[in-house]
Structures are given as structure tokens and as C-alpha cells.
Amino acid sequence: MSEVILSVNELAVTFRGEGKKRLTAVDNVSFDLKRGGSLGIVGESGCGKSVTALSLMRLLPKPAGDIARGSIVLSDTEGNAVDLVKYPQKKLHKIRGKRVAMIFQDPSSSLNPVHKIGKQLMEVYKLHFPKMSYEQRHREAVDLLRRVDIPSPERRMLDFPHNLSGGMKQRVVIALALACKPEVLIADEPTTALDVTVQEQILSLIKGLQRETGMSLLLITHDVGVVAEMCDDVVVMYAGRVAEKGAIRDIIDNPQHPYTKGLLTSIPSLSSAPKARLSTIEGSVPSLYDMPQGCRFANRCDLAEQRCEQQPALGRLGDGRYVACHKVAHQVVREEAHGSS
């Protein structure tokens, strides 16, 4: 039984809508990231993946966005746990970059355009280890660039971000995130903005670094194939809620939620029989402005029926396996307290 390093419980995030109304972008999301493990979050565009990730860093745009409910518990090896939701804003810099680091989707905009790569890397050490000497910081920075497989790192230290290709930039971003040896790395679609050939390299780099450092990885993507390659566990999100979660192998072998099934048939490499055309799920995600009362997937679900007008609870099917769908309710082992709406 692995120990949990980051435990998200019943997280709800709201944004300021028109007037006084608040829109719920993430609703009742719970998952556990195991120490040294890797967890994938998949879902379509707009389902709240980035919002979830930003909440974990307490980086939601204020005052528009706000964590309305829930807890995010970060535990260390000695058994001390802190709730990041209640963590004082003034002390957040002790967590950010040092214990939990994040990589963003677009490397070309994640670097400060006016500073050299070397300066930006050394800056992180300045932030977290102010006593380090210039030489030490320089040595560490070059070493970092070497670890993310950047050729002739000493020379690259003197480059500006615009001198580097997208893949190289993302390597630098990864180096920045790894500078202080964080316990948790959150990667929000780290390869979406890159060329297909580069995507593979970056993913295997992240995987390799994870193995090397023993850090835990939270990988956000809309590609189940990537999760299958990179992660042990997966959370499938739909319209701000968890549709299904569990071990990636179980879910690929035996998807239960109609949405997960749809997602899986949309990737050719994983479907049993190769199809001529990708089958995508018909219809579109309901907007935040008019979320249905019942199952949020109902308007696209082939199996929708009367009771789907009630919100389905997240029910436990087996070891670590949860699904939120009325169709599988009869298989539920035990009602989860946090599954109700």
C-alpha cells in the first residue's frame, strides 16, 4: 500500500460570473496522488483540468477565481500534513517551486522574454536558497540543463528564450521546475504546444526524471494514450466533475462510464479493432452558465434515461475504482460519503 503525498478532497472552484453569480468550474473533485506515483487527469478542453492544477498551486486568478470548498493535503515523509487551501498566502513561496512545482502548456510563454536562460535558472536558487554563492548557483544551473538533455548547456545559459526551439524551451521550463527537487511535479499538458516528434522526447524525459528523482507526477492531458504510457492511475474528468477514476490498466481494459468508453474508442491505438475513422463523441460539453441539474453527460449519452436527471454519485466499484453513473450503480460496493452532490 503506497503512501499518499497529495490528497485532494471534494475540491470545488468557482469563478465570478455575470453579476453576483458564481460559476462552478470544478465541482466535488477528489483524488489521491501516491508518493513516487503518477496520476493522470484526462478530459476534454474546458473540463477543469487546468483549474484543478492551478488550485493545487494556489495560483487561481484572484479575485475572479476562488476555492469554494474542499481540502488539498500535502504530506511529508514524517507524517506532517498541511492543507494547502488553508495555507497562509505569505508562506506559499515555501511550497511553490520547492515542494510542488508546475510546468505549463506553452513553453514559449512560460519564460521571461527579457532574461537569459541562465539568469532565470539561477534566479530560482536565489529565491529558495539565498545563501548560495554565484558560482554554486551557476554550477547547479548548468547541471540542471545537462539533466534535461540540453546540449552544450554552458553556451545555452547565455541564450534568451527566443533563441531556443519550442522543445528546448520546454526542457528549460522543466529544468526550472526541477531546480529545487520538488516532491510533486504538476505538468499541465506539457506537450500540447510542441511538434509531434518532440512530444515523445519530452514525455520520456519527464518519465526518466521522475524515475531518477522519485518525485510524484500529476500529468494533465486530453490524451488517454499519454496517460497509459506515463501513469499508474487516472482521473477522468467531465464538465468539472470526476466521471471515473482508478488504475489506468483497469480503466483501459474495462471502462465503465459511457464518457470513458467514448474517450477510449477515440484513440485508435488502444481500441481492439482498428477503425477507419476516429469515433468522436457527438454533441458538446454544457457551458458553465447552464449546467444541468442531473448527470452532466446526459445530453451526449446514448444510455441516458429518466433517473439521469438526478446527479449520479461517485460510487466505489472495487479497489480504488470509482464511477459516477447511474448505469453502474448496481455494482457499487459501498456508498462513498463524499460521492453525493
Partner: peptide, 29 residues
């Protein structure tokens, strides 16, 4: 301040003053 590199820097632990004087003002030179 809405740009990614500012959020990324916050995510690395940079404080508000540092963001203003090392990120925003130099980029608005």
C-alpha cells in the same frame, strides 16, 4: 500580469515585488 510567464514565476515561488520589478516592468520598458 495575465501572461503565463508571470504565473509560472509565481509557481516557482517568486514574490509580488520581484514579479513587478523583474518581470513586468522590464517587459514594459
Amino acid at each position: 500580469k495575465a501572461k503565463d510567464y508571470v504565473t509560472a514565476a509565481r509557481g516557482l515561488g517568486a514574490g509580488h515585488l520581484r514579479i513587478m520589478f523583474k518581470y513586468i516592468i522590464p517587459n514594459s520598458i
